[in-house]
């Protein structure tokens, strides 16, 4: 039932997002719709769905509710990869940029997993703290390189999530995250199982290592694809899965559709706000998503820590 309600909301916002913009609905031409509006709305929906799912998977892989690609250093590694690619191969295509970002993201999050599995931690919030610190170190490296090449402002402009530049022909690589989502649906149950630890998953007949690598691959592909086409959109992967699991439990197989649709809904909503607040101009979506997601997540965090206290 709840899936249908969310789906209906997604459809309503999708339609709304198509008709909002600098040019009013009466003057809307077919070309405009196909060249600009539809690509934009589609890419918002896809990014929202994939970021939210990637967050949920990362949370299960690390058995921690607060670790997402953003707090588990995947995004920072992918950014570093993209920066290196831009400096060394300036004429690189979107596909090769994505590939390098993906590679860095995958290896980087693997190293983060190795670190946190190596240490025994008393408190659960320490894991994302270490993740963020680890991400900061990677970011410091990127800043160091960027400073040498005078690229700091340019890094900031291409990492800031923004859908305004999405046009037909510039975003299609984002469609690659749809197969990732499908694989995630297939493996949803396995991810839930491996979140309970190596021993339990072995005794339940799930291959721990293989599933872990598949999960990480999905997470880093999604992060790289969204980073290269849109930029960084914070908090989707953190806030949405947390809200869904707070209400409907931990099983990813049951919730994956809700989580994905919830992410899409959230981003569509943020984008509409971004475009209407200072109409006919717009605010980058990373800002609206940060504010909305941050507030939502703080509520969740306070709820959870009350729950445990």
């Amino acid at each position: 039932m709840r899936r249908f309600i969310i789906l209906a909301l997604v459809i309503i916002l999708f339609a709304l997002s198509l008709v909002i913009g600098a040019i009013s609905i009466h003057d809307l031409t077919r070309t405009l719709l196909i060249q600009s509006r539809l690509p934009r709305t589609l890419s918002i929906l896809i990014s929202g769905m994939s970021l939210s799912t990637a967050g949920a998977i990362m949370q299960l892989l690390t058995s921690n509710r607060f670790v997402t690609p953003a707090t588990g250093s995947t995004t920072e590694w992918a950014k570093l990869g993209m920066l290196i690619c831009i400096i060394w191969i300036p004429q690189a295509t979107i596909a090769s940029k994505t590939l390098i970002a993906l590679l860095f993201g995958f290896l980087g999050s693997l190293s983060f997993l190795a670190i946190i599995q190596h240490i025994r931690l008393k408190e659960r919030t320490l894991v994302p703290l270490i993740g963020i610190i680890y991400g900061n170190i990677v970011a410091a490296t990127a800043t160091f390189i960027g400073y040498q090449y005078d690229l700091i402002q340019s890094i900031q402009s291409w990492t800031q999530g923004n859908f305004a530049l999405i046009l037909k022909g510039r975003y299609e690589v984002l469609y690659l995250s749809i197969p990732c989502l499908l694989i995630a649906v297939l493996y949803a149950n396995q991810f839930t199982v491996i979140s309970m630890g190596k021993e339990i998953s072995h005794s339940l007949g799930v291959r721990y290592k293989t599933t872990l690598y598949i999960g990480l691959m999905i997470v880093s592909s999604i992060s790289a694809l969204v980073l290269v086409t849109v930029g960084v959109i914070p908090f989707v992967g953190l806030a949405i899965p947390n809200i869904v699991t707070l209400f409907w439990g931990e099983s990813l197989e049951k919730n994956i559709v809700t989580i994905a649709l919830g992410g899409g809904l959230f981003l569509l909503f943020c984008d509409i706000i971004s475009r209407t607040l200072i109409h006919p101009f717009e605010i980058p979506i990373s800002v609206t998503a940060s504010i909305a997601g941050c507030l939502l997540f703080i509520l969740v965090l306070v709820q959870r820590s009350r729950h445990e206290a």
Binding site: F66, S286, V287, S290, C294, S305
Partner: peptide, 17 residues
């Protein structure tokens, strides 16, 4: 750790702004 995490989250918000 929760408070620090909260601080970091708000910090990210400031960073985005």
């Amino acid at each position: 750790t929760t408070v620090l995490f909260l601080g970091m989250i708000v910090g990210q918000l400031f960073g985005a702004l």
